[in-house]
Design a protein around this nucleic acid. Structure first.
Lengths: 245, 245
DNA sequence: CAAGAACGTTTCATATGATAATTATGACTC
DNA sequence: GAGTCATAATTATCATATGAAACGTTCTTG
């Protein structure tokens, strides 16, 4: 690019994240996910450090974090290699964000909602059995925000997130609760896609039905209502793909 | 070993894992999960290194991996602190294993099966729509092994795992596929609990129903059959707990 | 006396250089 | 041609020094 120059301008180093290590984590993570090291050779520890203008310590720590997330594996002499996508931890918010950001994959979005359609109805059902007052209050708040959003007084996306996260939390099941972050991340990252869908998705009435079912301790109604909500999203997504398989 | 010696025996240092870093990862991870640092102070980077007889580099890398898994967070001057369990990544095989090994929590086992009851029926349903021949073959293999296990020719647990993993894989949804490792880990680790349950759970007939539904492309039947299987497990687990909430 | 600025301490963050451990590769032997 | 072994490349580990950030303390000052 920069037409001239024999003098190499310092790489912008890394900047995202709260410090060099986390910045590098983000940078390399994104690069791996976008396929920049297409199963080919991954740079050596020393090269990687040089390329990004950081020390080997920082590089090693970033690589170790990516290893923990399942994206890399390293062995002496063999080098550091990118793992097959099947071993990436998709339930890690970072990994999921990188994947959703890379190309706005509608496939991934569909698959993610296939997960939601399994999990969230069950979470709603559980919530109807075990939710406490605080939980219901949080769900109410989410619902209120959705209503406010309808009149333009709140962000529809954030309101929707607040509602669904509140339900997950109310289930008191740590596995579901864990998905809070993943769901938030995914919904926020895939705005561009969901925007057009949103108008119809933000079906406040159906959300209210979920809320009422939980408040009145009716697990089955809660499950069905939630399934309707996410099933609708799924249908809208699938409609945009002529043929999948 | 070497019986003698006034010479201070080196701390067993760390041994699990393929090297010091991964050994330390395992050691600290287990310690955190068993609550050895009960929200109290976590040792300083230097202390931690000293205690385990390794260098600070190794310590830092292990801590960084635990950070990536959501168990720790570190800031200058404040120190390294254990994160609330709600931010631990339960979908990480290491974390889940540590948690299941710590005390065989029947609560966790129930919650895990609450996840399965949401996910696996949906995976079976998806599989009925998109499974290929290879997938069906793998499912068949799992089923055969279960039948063999009934006559004592195979390990019932491994056969069961093989079947459920095959179904997850057949769904072709990376989120479900990802759960393979988690499901395997959880089932293997919780043997002691499930053993007594197993006799009745290894309901080959019901598993065969799932297989047939998938092979004949009937998503709804597949979903329902799978839900029956896991629902039964859940009932058995809940029966062992008089009152939960 | 109180408010705020300067300073110091503690802890993680980063950099660097040296050495050990591991193992893929190719040379070598038979 | 098959098996064995030396070599070299790469990560793993160690040690030490320095930087940066966060928090408390003290000192100044109105």
């Amino acid at each position: 690019m920069a037409g001239s120059s024999h003098l190499i301008v310092d790489e912008p180093v890394v900047q995202l994240g709260r410090n060099l290590t986390f910045g590098l984590l983000d940078s390399i993570g994104r690069a791996i996910v976008t396929g920049q090291f297409g199963s080919a050779v991954f740079p050596t520890e020393a090269e990687l450090a040089k390329q990004h203008g950081v020390s080997r310590s920082v590089t090693r720590e970033a690589v170790k974090m990516l290893t923990a997330k399942g994206l890399l594996s390293a062995r002496p002499r063999q080098g550091t290699i990118v793992q097959p996508t099947s071993s990436w931890n998709l339930f890690d918010a970072d990994v999921l964000r990188w994947m959703l950001e890379r190309q706005l994959s509608i496939d991934l979005l569909r698959q993610f909602n296939e997960l939601r359609v399994a999990v969230e109805p069950e979470a709603a059902s559980l919530a109807a059995r075990v939710a406490g007052e605080d939980d219901i209050r949080r769900i109410d708040e989410g619902l209120c925000r959705m209503q406010a959003a309808e009149c333009g007084f709140d962000d529809p996306l954030e309101a929707d997130i607040a509602f669904h996260v509140a339900v997950l939390r109310a289930s008191k099941n740590p596995f579901y609760i864990q998905l809070r972050e993943v769901v938030s991340t995914a919904l926020r990252t895939s705005i561009r896609f969901t925007n057009r869908i949103k108008g119809r998705t933000a079906d406040v009435a159906e959300h209210a039905k979920v809320r009422d079912a939980i408040a009145s301790r009716d697990p089955d109604v809660a499950r069905i209502a939630m399934r309707t909500i996410i099933g609708d999203v799924l249908v809208l997504i699938e409609d945009r793909i002529p043929s999948i398989e």
